[in-house]
């Protein structure tokens, strides 16, 4: 099954490159809901992905406060692929600023020491230069918040900015995570909450879906430029990192994660949390039914 899935994925990915140029031009006229961009520089891939999705204006309006949530979980340099690519984050900041966002906030609740993780990820220097406000999350900034329709969690501590921002955009990095299979968009919410976060791990599927009921990103942009294939989510060995030069962006967060899983080499149906999210009506899990629009810079 795995191999077949992999072959199908590869066929789809490379197939995109074989599409006639004209079809791409035609396609750009209408906005897509799920795009896969590959083989470009991080910033140009993000910018292209947003163009194909109909432009940043589709998601961010003038005067809004936008919260960008990259993965800054670990005290690792960017090349270890444990944290989101800083150039990708910076391009998103620029896009949001260009769309007229009043404020672009970048933050995460790291597992390692916050200052060390922020510094090693290099996200603050890139994002601040691009015009973002990079913040640390403080203990007194979490608010106990009810989760409507939560099946397992009725309430949890959420960071105030996650509750008050006009728009939230997820910028996860695709990487290995033994419990969930791969960490993509859904697990990104872990960086917006406080409290005893380890408790979310059991039962993981129910809890992570419940948290994502309260926090709804308008867009998820997955960094699959360098992908940590083993020993995630912290990594630490460059041999475990694979250069994939891919960015997946989309509106349906279940579908984005399903495609993330496929790129990673997993069958989305083996992820119980993704199946649960689909079953609860949060989005589409069937990648066959909903292929992304593919753009390849090398094509």
């Amino acid at each position: 099954m795995d191999r077949r899935q992999f072959l199908k994925t590869s066929a789809l990915l490379t197939g995109g490159a074989l599409l006639p140029k004209s079809s791409i031009v035609r396609a750009q006229a209408k906005a897509h809901n799920l795009v896969l961009v590959k083989n470009g520089q991080p910033a140009e891939m993000v910018s292209k992905a947003l163009d194909l999705l109909g432009g940043i204006q589709r998601f961010v309006a003038t005067g809004e406060v936008v919260l960008l949530k990259p993965n800054i979980s670990w005290d690792r340099a960017p090349e270890y692929a444990a944290t989101t690519n800083p150039e990708l984050v910076a391009e998103m900041v620029r896009q949001c600023r260009n769309a007229g966002a009043k404020k672009v906030i970048v933050l995460d609740n790291p597992c390692n020491d916050a200052r060390r993780s922020y510094a090693s990820s290099r996200i603050p220097e890139y994002a601040e230069k691009a015009g973002a406000e990079v913040k640390f999350m403080r203990e007194n900034q979490y608010v106990e918040t009810p989760i409507p329709n939560g099946t397992k969690l009725k309430s949890w501590l959420f960071h105030q900015d996650a509750l008050t921002a006009d728009k939230i955009i997820y910028l996860p990095i695709l990487k290995h995570h033994r419990l969930s299979g791969a960490t993509i968009g859904f697990k990104n919410v872990m960086g917006l909450i406080g409290g005893n976060r380890g408790r979310i791990h059991f039962p993981f599927a129910e809890n992570i879906v419940d948290l994502n009921r309260r926090i709804v990103p308008v867009l998820t942009v997955v960094d699959a430029i360098r992908v940590l294939k083993r020993n995630g989510p912290g990594g630490g060995n460059l041999h475990d990192v694979e250069q994939m030069n891919t960015v997946v962006a989309g509106i349906d967060r279940v579908l984005v994660d399903a495609w993330g899983a496929r790129i990673f080499g997993h069958d989305p149906y083996t992820y119980d949390w993704l199946k649960l999210a689909h079953a609860q009506g949060l989005g589409e899990i069937d990648t066959e039914k909903r292929p992304p629009f593919i753009f390849d810079f090398k094509a």
Binding site: C111, N112, L179, P203, N231, G234, G235, G236, D240
Partner: peptide, 16 residues
């Protein structure tokens, strides 16, 4: 409890 947890495994900083 025979439930998955793996918080310790997730955080282990040793590369392997």
């Amino acid at each position: 409890l025979n439930q998955n947890c793996m918080v310790c495994e997730e955080h282990c900083p040793v590369a392997d």
